[in-house]
Each structure stands twice: as C-alpha cells, then as structure tokens.
Nucleic acid binder design. Structure first.
Lengths: 337, 337
DNA sequence: CTGTTTACTGCAAACGTTTGCGATTTAGCT
DNA sequence: AGCTAAATCGCAAACGTTTGCAGTAAACAG
C-alpha cells in the first residue's frame, strides 16, 4: 500500500508538500504538484481514511440506523427507497453510508467511537430509548419521521405530509358518503401510526362526525396481521364501507382478505393505500393512494444531516416533503347503488 | 471525548496498562483492571476506531456495493432481504456494514483507502468493469451471484440454486404438457439471466424438445418492461401456454398484463414466478414459485467474506444455498380442457 | 538466602496523515 | 543592486491507539 512518505521520497520532496499537493492546497510549485500527482497515480495511492480521520476528526460517514425491526417489516420498499435517497445525496457530498440494522447497543456509540459523523434514524419509534442519548450527547442526528408536536425534546427531522395526507384522504372518503371507515394501523409506538391516527380523527371531527373506535385496528405492520384484522372487520355485523391501509406492508394483506371474499372494489368496499410501492398499480382496480415520496425524504434527511455535521446547525430543523393523494379507481361513492 | 490517556491519568497507571485492561488481555492486576473499567464506564469511554484501525490495519467494516442500478431495480425486495442477511451475520461477528449504491468509482478504492476490510458485490453483472481490479489487487471479495462455470477468473461467490431451480421448473412445465413456455428475463449482462436461461434451454434439450427463441424475452428488470413484453407475447398468433418470470420486479408486470386481458390462470396460461417476495401469496391464485432464499444467501456471503478477511482464504469458495420449487395453483396441465 | 521463573508495568515507537511555524527561496519594485 | 513582500518548503508535533521490549516486583523452589 502506497503512503505519502513513499511518494515524497520518490519525488524528492518533504511529505508535507505531498500532502498539500494531493489536497490541492496552496503553497506548492506547479511542477512539483504535477510530479506528485503523477507518482501518486503510478503508485495507485489512496489516502488512508483512518489516518486522515484521526487528525481531522471527521471520517466522512453517515450512520443510517434502522432500529430493531422484524424481518417482515424490513421487506417494506420504504427502506429501499429511503436508502436510495440517502445514498444519492451522500455520494454527491462526498460521504459514505454505514448501515446499521437491528443493532442491540446505543446509537450514540457509533458516533462516540468515531465510526460516523452523524446519524439518521429511520422509522423512528416514539419509545426508542436511544434517541434521548443522542440529544444529550449532541450527536448530529436526524430522525425520520419526526416526533409529534410538542414532544419533550427537539430533534431535527424529515417528514412527508403524514398528517395532511390522511386528513385529505379521510375527508375525501367522507365526502363520498362513507362513514364507517376502517383504518389498519401499525403499532402505536410508530410515529407514523400516531400522526396518521390523529389526522383520521381530526378529519371526522372537523366535519362534525364521529369516528368509531372499533374500525381502528393496530397491526404489527405485517401483511399477515393486516389480513387477520381485515378479516375481523369484514366479519362485523356492520362491516366498514371503506378502509385505509397504513403502508406497503399492510396493504397486500388487506387486499387479499377482500379478494378472498369475492368482494368488489369499490362497489362493496373502497380502499385507500398509503405507501411508496408502485405495486399498487398492479391491483385491479388501480388503488387510490397516498403516494409517499420516500426517496425525497431520504434525500432531504441526508442533506439536513450533512448540514448539521458541517455547520453545527441547520437552517430548517423540521423539513416536510409535500406529497399527494392520487385518486384512482378503488374508491367510490357510498352507498354505491 | 474520553481517551485512554485520561483514563490512565485518573487511574494512576500507564496507558498501555489501560489498553490491556480494556481489551482484556493478560498482564494487568485484577484490581487495576477493575478500576480501569470503572473509570472507562464513568467517562463514557469509546475507543477511537480510526486510531485503532491505524495501528491494527483493520477497520471492522464490510463494504456492500450495489453497482449502478436503476431506481426501479433497487425496489426489488431482493436487496432488503440480502441486507438483512448480511447485517445479521456482520453484527454477530463484530463487523459493520458500509453500503455503497451506484458509486461511480472503482470498488477497490474503498478497500485501498482502508474504509472497508473486504467487499461483497451484490447483483453482480458479468460485465462489471471493477471486479477484475478487485481480483488483481487481492481484495477480499465475494460476488453474488457468481460467474458462469469456466469464467476467466475465480472470485469467491454465493449463489442460490439458480440453475437447478429453473431446470426443475421448466421440466415440471414440460411434464404438464406445456411446450410454448415464455421466459421473461432481465438483461443478458446479469448473471441471473445467463444462468437461468442456460437452465431453460437445457431442460428442453434434455427432454429432446426444442425451445423457441421467440418466447425468450429480455427485459430491463422493470415491471413496466415486463408488462410490455408480456403484451407482445400474448399478441402472438401462437401465444405461450406458460410463462416464467425472472424476479420480483418483473412478475407484477407479467401478472398485470395477463389480468388486464381477462385471461385465467392457470386455465389460459400457467405462471411460474422466481423471487423472494412473499407478495406472490397475495395473488389469486397463489403462484407457483421458485422461492429464492435471499436472506440466507446474504448470511452466507457475509460469512465467507469474514473468513476471507480473517484467514486470508476460505474453505468453500463457491457456496450454493439450496432452494425449492413451491408448486401452488398458478400452473396446470396443458391443454387444460 | 539466593537464584529463577512468573506476573505485572511503563516506555517509546509505530500506524499515515495534517498543519502551524519558522526558514528559505523567489518575485516584484525602486 | 538592494529591499520588501510573497510564495514555497520542510520540520516536527499531534491525533489515539497497540505492542515489543526492557525493567521491576513478586512468588517460588532449592
């Protein structure tokens, strides 16, 4: 492995000059710089990132932590899209990505051992015990999604319009005449579940209507569980006339349950999906969907984190990426006949 | 940030003793060891990984590179499953994961700059220009999937039974009476496409039958393209009676095309899917599937790579993870009436 | 009590960089 | 030519560890 000293010896200059030449800093004669660069090329020189990190106190790596999650949850295309967004910005800004899934120890230790310069926590849970430590220790951190308003501490976050989206979707369904609208949620420690349920309730309230608790079901974010819950709902004496499914993991389960009973969408039941998967287009009929711009969220998260690392602060602590309710053919007026 | 020197000063011992105590090496009095550990705890000490790496010439990170891939290709649950497998073994063995997507420079530079101790290349393409460099420079490397037999160089690899699976599936279809079997492939620079196409052809040949080139279609691994190609196939004067779809990205396109024409599965056309997604269970009818054990492949890849890093060599250079053809209801005898 | 092994301890070098500072050269002006 | 300012250059320290080696103390055997 070639080092700066070897280049220096071969070029007949001191190694501080080599360093300056390689980092194209000022204070080195053009001819020397040229010569150094040539030799570096020839020797296939690559700077030793650890040595560099040691003196500069910066390693150029973003930690991406995905807290303890089940295997089925990780199948969610959410993570792929997010990683793609994070990676693209990180690449452009000269950072690498360290991926940490299901790690059993504190997030902060990654930072304290100088493996990463900052951390983004994906699919953040309200009860994640390690976030307070990140805040206390001043670790550059971005959480996705953010905490509800008025939370006890303030961490930079990136969100899509979780609240507005669901609010719009429910309002839309209410306007179509639906009143018995089921909501297949995830666990209530997920910020997504919390915020989206709030929006669900608010949409009813703002129209002077009552939602019914029995139509609100917490899943474990798996297809299987969504299938089960949807079965329960359809077995009710007064089954819902519409259902909204919280993410790409639950939607297939919901659809499967509906299809397996031979129910027609939207004549017998309207369906609204939330997610980033474009599998929804596959369904028959195409699903009315809250299309979550996950890749964009990932890009923004990387951007904010890098700003946090480099400037020590960020201009916008809570970024919101706009999204949209895409109305397709799985929703219809109620009653339908 | 606490350092070893601070601990040393506080404990009143030399910092070599502290180092030995922390790495529980021999040669330090039990009482001192205890004291050191207490102080380390109290000071929230974390070893500086760069400093460690500098002297030990080992950073404890596996590079996971996903070569230039399109956004839609990365949606494939393949990657999630793989990362889960890699991560679980890496965690257990004390390694971290560096995720590199779509990087524009050579894979080897990651290693040369000491960012990683070794590299696994996912969804390796036959024409990836950076693999030879990894081989030449003796970088600990595992590719998934491997190269075809007799390839010009030999890189450790992990595969599922790509060949056998397709061979079995085609044989199964032939036994059902099918002769016009379409194959929706990916690009022919993908090792998956190459190997699986070989198996397709061999299955025909070994039964003394002829396959027809017109039923073999190369997609770009996208749902959209699969939809288009399936449309083309169904428009033929003699459309295929069965179709096999190469991965989780193409299958939805294939199904969508079939469904949108109101064709019945398996009465009008039999379908075999290849993939790791369990979305296939969602379809009606449930799909006959070559279930690819991607997470296992990921686990094996990490295991081999770590062995390569630590021992300098590995016992088994080409690991094959067994998989299975799961026959469900999307395949039937032909002709069906 | 002496000699020998064993367990512990600390010094200092090494890993490959960056960077402040002083020394030296070069360039620019009169 | 003589003076000043600017550009270039190299020395050496520093970053936080690990580790070989030599030295010291303790334990043990004779």
């Amino acid at each position: 492995m070639a080092t700066i000293k070897q280049i220096a010896k071969k070029a007949g200059v001191s190694y501080s000059s080599v360093s300056r030449a390689l980092n194209n800093q000022t204070g080195v004669r053009p001819e020397i710089r040229k010569k150094v660069l040539e030799i570096a090329q020839e020797l296939n020189y690559h700077p030793h990132s650890s040595a560099k990190a040691l003196v500069q106190n910066r390693i150029g790596v973003l930690g991406v932590v995905i807290p303890r999650t089940s295997e089925f949850a990780f199948q969610n295309p959410y993570y792929s899209h997010m990683l793609l967004g994070l990676s693209s910005v990180a690449n452009d800004m000269g950072y690498h990505l360290m991926l940490v899934i299901n790690q059993q120890q504190s997030h902060a230790s990654l930072y304290h051992s100088h493996l990463v310069d900052g951390i983004v926590v994906l699919a953040n849970r309200i009860d994640d015990p390690y976030i307070p430590e990140l805040v206390r220790d001043n670790v550059p951190t971005v959480v996705v999604p953010g905490y509800p308003d008025g939370w006890e501490f303030d961490v930079p976050s990136v969100n899509s319009e979780n609240y507005q989206d669901v609010y719009r979707a429910i309002t839309y369904l209410l306007n179509l005449g639906h009143r018995d609208i089921a909501f297949i949620l995830g666990g209530m420690n997920s910020n997504y579940s919390l915020v989206r349920l709030d929006a669900y309730k608010a949409a009813f309230r703002d129209k002077g209507l009552e939602y019914k608790d029995k139509y609100i079901k917490e899943s474990d974010f798996s297809k299987t569980d969504a299938f089960r819950l949807m079965g329960y709902l359809l077995n009710l004496p007064d089954p819902p006339s519409a259902v909204i499914s919280i993410n790409d993991a639950t939607t297939p389960g919901v659809l499967h349950q509906i299809n397996s009973r031979g129910l027609r969408i939207p004549e017998d039941i309207s369906v609204v999906a939330i997610g980033c998967s474009d599998l929804v287009d596959l369904t028959d009929p195409p699903l009315t969907t809250i299309k979550v711009p996950v890749t964009q969220v990932g890009r923004a998260a990387a951007r904010v984190l890098i700003e946090l690392i480099e400037k020590g602060d960020c201009r916008e602590r809570h970024v919101v990426i706009p999204s949209a309710l895409v109305v397709r053919e799985s929703t219809g007026v109620w009653p339908s006949s």
